[in-house]
Protein backbone atom coordinates (compact mmCIF):
# COMPACT_ATOMS: atom_id res chain seq x y z
CA UNK A 1 0.00 0.00 0.00
CA UNK A 2 2.82 2.37 0.91
CA UNK A 3 4.39 1.49 -2.44
CA UNK A 4 1.17 2.44 -4.26
CA UNK A 5 1.03 5.83 -2.53
CA UNK A 6 4.66 6.39 -3.42
CA UNK A 7 4.01 5.52 -7.09
CA UNK A 8 1.04 7.87 -7.13
CA UNK A 9 2.91 10.81 -5.58
CA UNK A 10 5.91 10.28 -7.86
CA UNK A 11 4.04 11.72 -10.83
CA UNK A 12 2.49 14.57 -8.88
CA UNK A 13 5.80 16.10 -7.88
CA UNK A 14 9.07 14.19 -7.98
CA UNK A 15 8.90 13.14 -11.62
CA UNK A 16 6.19 15.56 -12.70
CA UNK A 17 5.99 15.11 -16.48
CA UNK A 18 5.72 18.80 -17.32
CA UNK A 19 7.96 20.56 -14.83
CA UNK A 20 10.46 17.92 -13.74
CA UNK A 21 10.79 15.56 -16.70
CA UNK A 22 9.91 18.28 -19.26
CA UNK A 23 8.13 15.85 -21.55
CA UNK A 24 4.97 16.14 -23.66
CA UNK A 25 5.43 19.89 -23.94
CA UNK A 26 3.63 20.54 -27.24
CA UNK A 27 0.10 20.26 -25.85
CA UNK A 28 1.11 21.87 -22.54
CA UNK A 29 2.04 25.03 -24.44
CA UNK A 30 -0.49 24.99 -27.24
CA UNK A 31 -3.85 24.69 -25.50
CA UNK A 32 -3.13 26.61 -22.29
CA UNK A 33 -4.88 29.91 -23.01
CA UNK A 34 -7.73 29.45 -20.50
CA UNK A 35 -8.18 27.48 -17.27
CA UNK A 36 -10.86 25.11 -18.52
CA UNK A 37 -8.73 24.11 -21.55
CA UNK A 38 -5.97 23.01 -19.21
CA UNK A 39 -8.31 20.88 -17.11
CA UNK A 40 -9.98 19.33 -20.16
CA UNK A 41 -6.69 18.50 -21.86
CA UNK A 42 -5.29 17.11 -18.61
CA UNK A 43 -8.27 14.85 -17.98
CA UNK A 44 -8.26 13.62 -21.59
CA UNK A 45 -4.60 12.66 -21.25
CA UNK A 46 -5.19 11.08 -17.82
CA UNK A 47 -7.89 8.86 -19.32
CA UNK A 48 -5.71 7.68 -22.21
CA UNK A 49 -2.70 7.20 -19.92
CA UNK A 50 -4.61 5.20 -17.29
CA UNK A 51 -6.45 2.97 -19.76
CA UNK A 52 -3.36 2.20 -21.83
CA UNK A 53 -1.28 1.55 -18.69
CA UNK A 54 -3.91 -0.95 -17.50
CA UNK A 55 -3.89 -2.77 -20.82
CA UNK A 56 -0.10 -2.70 -21.21
CA UNK A 57 0.33 -4.00 -17.66
CA UNK A 58 -2.18 -6.81 -18.21
CA UNK A 59 -0.60 -7.79 -21.52
CA UNK A 60 3.01 -7.45 -20.39
CA UNK A 61 3.67 -11.20 -20.39
CA UNK A 62 1.89 -11.80 -23.70
CA UNK A 63 3.40 -9.12 -25.95
CA UNK A 64 6.75 -10.28 -27.41
CA UNK A 65 9.43 -7.74 -26.60
CA UNK A 66 10.45 -7.30 -30.26
CA UNK A 67 7.11 -5.87 -31.34
CA UNK A 68 6.21 -4.16 -28.07
CA UNK A 69 6.42 -0.54 -29.30
CA UNK A 70 3.97 -1.02 -32.22
CA UNK A 71 1.62 -2.89 -29.85
CA UNK A 72 1.72 -0.05 -27.31
CA UNK A 73 1.10 2.48 -30.06
CA UNK A 74 -2.01 0.59 -31.24
CA UNK A 75 -3.33 0.43 -27.67
CA UNK A 76 -2.72 4.16 -27.18
CA UNK A 77 -4.26 5.01 -30.57
CA UNK A 78 -7.42 3.08 -29.66
CA UNK A 79 -8.00 5.01 -26.45
CA UNK A 80 -7.10 8.29 -28.14
CA UNK A 81 -9.80 7.61 -30.73
CA UNK A 82 -12.30 6.98 -27.91
CA UNK A 83 -11.48 10.32 -26.28
CA UNK A 84 -11.54 12.08 -29.64
CA UNK A 85 -15.02 10.79 -30.53
CA UNK A 86 -16.32 11.38 -26.98
CA UNK A 87 -15.21 14.99 -26.90
CA UNK A 88 -16.46 15.63 -30.42
CA UNK A 89 -19.89 14.32 -29.41
CA UNK A 90 -20.38 15.84 -25.96
CA UNK A 91 -18.11 18.92 -25.76
CA UNK A 92 -18.04 20.42 -29.27
CA UNK A 93 -16.88 23.95 -28.23
CA UNK A 94 -13.99 22.56 -26.16
CA UNK A 95 -13.13 20.17 -28.99
CA UNK A 96 -12.88 23.15 -31.35
CA UNK A 97 -10.42 24.91 -29.04
CA UNK A 98 -8.23 21.88 -28.33
CA UNK A 99 -8.20 21.07 -32.05
CA UNK A 100 -5.64 18.55 -33.27
CA UNK A 101 -4.08 18.25 -29.84
CA UNK A 102 -6.67 15.66 -28.79
CA UNK A 103 -5.75 13.24 -31.61
CA UNK A 104 -2.11 14.13 -30.98
CA UNK A 105 -2.28 12.46 -27.53
CA UNK A 106 -1.34 9.34 -29.50
CA UNK A 107 2.19 10.71 -30.03
CA UNK A 108 2.41 12.43 -26.64
CA UNK A 109 5.70 11.22 -25.19
CA UNK A 110 4.24 10.93 -21.66
CA UNK A 111 1.99 8.01 -22.58
CA UNK A 112 4.64 5.96 -24.35
CA UNK A 113 7.20 6.89 -21.67
CA UNK A 114 5.01 5.42 -18.91
CA UNK A 115 3.94 2.41 -20.99
CA UNK A 116 7.51 1.51 -21.89
CA UNK A 117 9.21 2.65 -18.71
CA UNK A 118 6.75 1.60 -16.03
CA UNK A 119 3.55 -0.24 -16.96
CA UNK A 120 5.36 -2.88 -19.01
CA UNK A 121 7.27 -3.99 -15.91
CA UNK A 122 4.82 -3.35 -13.06
CA UNK A 123 1.85 -5.16 -11.57
CA UNK A 124 -1.64 -3.85 -12.34
CA UNK A 125 -2.28 -1.82 -9.12
CA UNK A 126 1.13 -0.15 -9.35
CA UNK A 127 0.62 0.67 -13.03
CA UNK A 128 -2.75 2.27 -12.25
CA UNK A 129 -1.31 4.28 -9.35
CA UNK A 130 1.57 5.50 -11.48
CA UNK A 131 -0.67 6.41 -14.45
CA UNK A 132 -3.13 8.33 -12.25
CA UNK A 133 -0.29 10.18 -10.54
CA UNK A 134 1.35 11.10 -13.84
CA UNK A 135 -1.97 12.11 -15.40
CA UNK A 136 -3.00 14.30 -12.48
CA UNK A 137 0.54 15.71 -12.26
CA UNK A 138 0.23 16.74 -15.89
CA UNK A 139 -3.26 18.14 -15.23
CA UNK A 140 -2.23 20.42 -12.36
CA UNK A 141 0.85 21.54 -14.21
CA UNK A 142 -0.94 22.63 -17.37
CA UNK A 143 -3.85 24.08 -15.40
CA UNK A 144 -1.33 26.25 -13.56
CA UNK A 145 0.20 27.40 -16.87
CA UNK A 146 -3.29 28.11 -18.22
CA UNK A 147 -4.30 30.14 -15.18
CA UNK A 148 -1.14 32.27 -15.26
CA UNK A 149 -1.66 32.96 -18.94
CA UNK A 150 -5.38 33.63 -18.49
CA UNK A 151 -4.88 36.07 -15.60
CA UNK A 152 -2.11 37.96 -17.36
CA UNK A 153 -3.57 37.71 -20.84
CA UNK A 154 -7.26 38.42 -20.38
CA UNK A 155 -7.54 39.31 -16.68
CA UNK A 156 -9.94 36.45 -15.90
CA UNK A 157 -9.80 33.28 -13.81
CA UNK A 158 -11.92 30.44 -15.26
CA UNK A 159 -13.79 33.15 -17.18
CA UNK A 160 -14.49 35.37 -14.12
CA UNK A 161 -13.01 38.85 -14.20
CA UNK A 162 -10.51 39.15 -11.34
CA UNK A 163 -8.06 41.82 -12.43
CA UNK A 164 -10.59 44.56 -13.17
CA UNK A 165 -9.08 45.10 -16.61
CA UNK A 166 -5.59 45.81 -15.24
CA UNK A 167 -3.93 43.10 -17.32
CA UNK A 168 -4.64 42.64 -20.98
CA UNK A 169 -1.25 41.56 -22.16
CA UNK A 170 -2.03 40.12 -25.55
CA UNK A 171 1.45 38.59 -25.77
CA UNK A 172 0.43 36.08 -23.06
CA UNK A 173 -2.32 34.74 -25.31
CA UNK A 174 0.05 34.50 -28.27
CA UNK A 175 2.67 31.74 -28.68
CA UNK A 176 5.60 33.69 -27.10
CA UNK A 177 3.66 34.01 -23.83
CA UNK A 178 3.39 30.23 -23.57
CA UNK A 179 7.16 29.81 -23.87
CA UNK A 180 7.93 32.59 -21.40
CA UNK A 181 5.45 31.38 -18.74
CA UNK A 182 6.68 27.80 -19.16
CA UNK A 183 10.32 28.85 -18.79
CA UNK A 184 9.67 30.92 -15.69
CA UNK A 185 7.50 28.22 -14.06
CA UNK A 186 10.17 25.55 -14.69
CA UNK A 187 12.66 27.95 -13.07
CA UNK A 188 10.40 28.45 -10.03
CA UNK A 189 9.93 24.67 -9.67
CA UNK A 190 13.73 24.30 -9.80
CA UNK A 191 14.06 26.81 -6.97
CA UNK A 192 11.43 25.06 -4.83
CA UNK A 193 12.85 21.58 -5.24
CA UNK A 194 16.49 22.72 -5.12
CA UNK A 195 17.30 20.05 -7.68
CA UNK A 196 17.34 21.67 -11.11
CA UNK A 197 16.34 19.64 -14.16
CA UNK A 198 19.40 19.32 -16.30
CA UNK A 199 17.93 17.71 -19.37
CA UNK A 200 14.63 16.56 -20.80
CA UNK A 201 13.51 12.95 -20.99
CA UNK A 202 12.47 13.05 -24.61
CA UNK A 203 14.57 13.13 -27.72
Amino acid sequence: MAQLVKDFLNGLWKENPTFRAVIGICSALAVTTAGQNGIAMGLALTFVLTCSSILVSLLRNIIPSKVRIPCYIIVIATFTTIVDLFMKAYFPPLYQVLGIFIPLIVVNCIVLWRAEGFASKASLPRAIADALGMGLGYTWAITLISLVREVLGSGTLFGINVMGGATHWVIMMLPPGAFLVMGILVGIMNMISRKPVKKTHCH
Binding site: V22, P176, L180, G183, I184, V186, G187, P196, K198
Partner: peptide, 23 residues
Amino acid sequence: VPEALKGPAIVFITAGLLAMIFL
Protein backbone atom coordinates in the same frame (compact mmCIF):
# COMPACT_ATOMS: atom_id res chain seq x y z
CA VAL B 1 22.60 31.91 -16.57
CA PRO B 2 20.91 32.12 -13.12
CA GLU B 3 21.18 28.80 -11.27
CA ALA B 4 17.44 28.05 -11.27
CA LEU B 5 17.02 28.74 -14.97
CA LYS B 6 19.79 26.41 -16.14
CA GLY B 7 18.71 23.59 -18.43
CA PRO B 8 15.31 23.58 -20.16
CA ALA B 9 14.02 26.74 -18.43
CA ILE B 10 16.36 29.12 -20.24
CA VAL B 11 15.72 27.26 -23.50
CA PHE B 12 12.00 27.99 -23.12
CA ILE B 13 12.60 31.67 -22.47
CA THR B 14 14.93 31.88 -25.48
CA ALA B 15 12.30 30.12 -27.58
CA GLY B 16 9.76 32.69 -26.36
CA LEU B 17 11.94 35.52 -27.67
CA LEU B 18 12.41 33.69 -30.97
CA ALA B 19 8.63 33.19 -31.19
CA MET B 20 8.20 36.94 -30.74
CA ILE B 21 10.52 37.50 -33.70
CA PHE B 22 8.48 35.07 -35.78
CA LEU B 23 5.33 37.04 -34.90
